[in-house]
Write a protein that binds this DNA or RNA. Sequence first.
DNA 1: AATGAATGAGAATTCATTCAT
DNA 2: GATGAATGAATTCTCATTCAT
Lengths: 220, 220, 220, 220
Amino acid sequence: MALNRSGPTKDRIRRAAVKLFADKGFHGTGIRDLAQEARLSSASLYHYVGNKEDLLAGIMRDALGALLTAAHEVVDGVADPVERLGRLVALHVITHAVQREETTVVDNEVRSLSAETRQPVVKLRDTYERLWTEAIRDGLRAGVFHTDRPSVTRLALLEMCNGVARWYSPGGALDLEQLAGHYARLALRAAGCTDPGAVPDLARCRAVVNTVWATAETGR
Amino acid sequence: MALNRSGPTKDRIRRAAVKLFADKGFHGTGIRDLAQEARLSSASLYHYVGNKEDLLAGIMRDALGALLTAAHEVVDGVADPVERLGRLVALHVITHAVQREETTVVDNEVRSLSAETRQPVVKLRDTYERLWTEAIRDGLRAGVFHTDRPSVTRLALLEMCNGVARWYSPGGALDLEQLAGHYARLALRAAGCTDPGAVPDLARCRAVVNTVWATAETGR
Amino acid sequence: MALNRSGPTKDRIRRAAVKLFADKGFHGTGIRDLAQEARLSSASLYHYVGNKEDLLAGIMRDALGALLTAAHEVVDGVADPVERLGRLVALHVITHAVQREETTVVDNEVRSLSAETRQPVVKLRDTYERLWTEAIRDGLRAGVFHTDRPSVTRLALLEMCNGVARWYSPGGALDLEQLAGHYARLALRAAGCTDPGAVPDLARCRAVVNTVWATAETGR
Amino acid sequence: MALNRSGPTKDRIRRAAVKLFADKGFHGTGIRDLAQEARLSSASLYHYVGNKEDLLAGIMRDALGALLTAAHEVVDGVADPVERLGRLVALHVITHAVQREETTVVDNEVRSLSAETRQPVVKLRDTYERLWTEAIRDGLRAGVFHTDRPSVTRLALLEMCNGVARWYSPGGALDLEQLAGHYARLALRAAGCTDPGAVPDLARCRAVVNTVWATAETGR
DNA sequence: AATGAATGAGAATTCATTCAT
DNA sequence: GATGAATGAATTCTCATTCAT
């Protein structure tokens, strides 16, 4: 039963690509680099993958899909906008810390996709960001946030959280939930939250990240 | 006085490189792309530039140099930590809005430098970030900021401001000083500033950005 | 009787190769193209065939063998050189019309064979062409043909008839025997035949083509 | 003055391509083969040529253009259909003998062109063949040719003449004008020409071929 | 009988760079 | 000051083929 063999190899390639695209960029990574990292000949790589761009597109789609799924799991049905934005921030931060390489690729390599491949990726991203937009909008309506230019605020908060992937390394002094809590506080304060005392359900966010990504990395 | 003739051409090359490195990345930009954008042959390029990496290193050094100079001009001698951090934020944001391409290169392409070339760049960056560190530290000591993990906060704020280069486009609804003011408010609130009512001297920041970059783009 | 099971598959491969070699050329056809056309994996192909060149050599040997056999059946014992040349032309034309792909491969891909493989193929072709040479020679001796440079004439007539495979498509306005008759007339006139009134036995030629190729496509 | 340098090199490449495409086919010829034959590195080849297909398309366009030009020069204003067809045959044969490689490429490699590139080539060829169609039609109307299915006859004669490139080698026993005269006789007889006694103006045909191709091989 | 996995060799093409003029 | 010519090394990707199962 060689059936489940293709899984591991394809995953090895995927992991190699994620790592190298994150560290050296799409254009900075050669097919030979990928093959070496995945312990295959470069010809064998093409047994599993159509081409370099397919690999990138697959990574981005899956990563954004996972993020979107996780966001819905964490936010759907939550009425309080403060809790909602707090959870989105925490989820985003935890994801960027735990899946540093995937999120780095997603955040940096959209431009490396061809127009046709880029489109669905951008659409996914837009769908995800809409959750942020709605949380902020509802908070403003409810009078718990205070900011003019809410869309600028949204962009600022998103970029702030994206940044985590650029410096966080696990095993530092800060554990994940502390990190997420810190960012949630920063974000809510920045949003003009009157009483950011309550902290979002960090454990929930972390658990969701774990299960969603466990699925993402198996279900291929 | 044919001496300063090389100036204009070299500037054209520099501008071409800044544009393309920002838009397509260092590895995504070919020498021929650069030559075409600068309207000369790729062979002629080598009259003005040692090689591709020199070009990148030059851009980064000058851009970071300008940022550091501007920061000192804006911050030195300012006692109030709130005003200091506010100005740093405003300056950083204005720079990322006005010099979008330069800052994009600085923020994304450090990894494309060789180890030796990278070192002085990183050092410059560290020197610059120390100004942020100090402002935050002083604000905490003075009791006007409230944040545990001040270095995490610093990183979060810096990344938030870096993000401006990823989405701002001049000619939008938001003018520069509004933008800078908005970000200053977000940042100070996030830092736990008790009374962020006072806004930093935005006009000063903007003026400094203008003069520093006018110099930077001529003095080559 | 599982013995003749390999027949069908091998035939499918053969047919695939004939089609693709004819349409895209030997070098323009990949092993994977062949496998796809034959509806099996490229690895399975190698169960039935030594390698790409074997496939080509087999096609050529069989096709030339069939042509030679048919020619003998049609010509042996026929004394009249006009009838003989007429039949050779008709047979050649019918074969090129009915077995367009096989003859295209034979006519175009000799150069793609390696030296050793090429030799027997060329020998077969020479043997076949000798029948034409003899018919023309006998017609000249008998005073029914008139042409100096008979070998140039032979080459001209052969190429004229080869051409049929380049444009004839079944189902056109012209049926096979009309086509063959037309070419026989052209050829005999060109050979300076004084009275080309009598037409060769086209039905015989056609029947022989049919039986010979029925055998050729089964007896593998 | 390095200006006229690019001429010779580009011509060397063209000649190499013509030779190799003729002898080994488009798909049988590698870029490295071409470079070696043209005494360049394969990278240098791309200094002069866009890609392999451009090279092929250029050869085909120029060769067909030359053939068409020559045909017009030889046939325009000639009223007698016998002389006209005779000249077309002679011209075609001489061209296939003298420019064996070019015509071989034209006759065999149309299929190797991509759809867009193929179109203009096919159009040129059609324009050229129309001259044959008209000569035959006029001869039939004038009652000097006798053939039903004139378009089949046209195809047969064209292929007969194409064949020359497959076997003729200069320096054989047969000189060019003898060859052309022989083919003209064969063709006119095949066309049912009642009195093929008169031979077309072979010297004229030959001269036109020479001048047209001298231009073709310089005017690049 | 059949195939997924694997690969070394080679395909076409692009790269950054040098140099003679 | 400027560039056409040139190239070795590298690029992405395909090739025909083998082999374990």
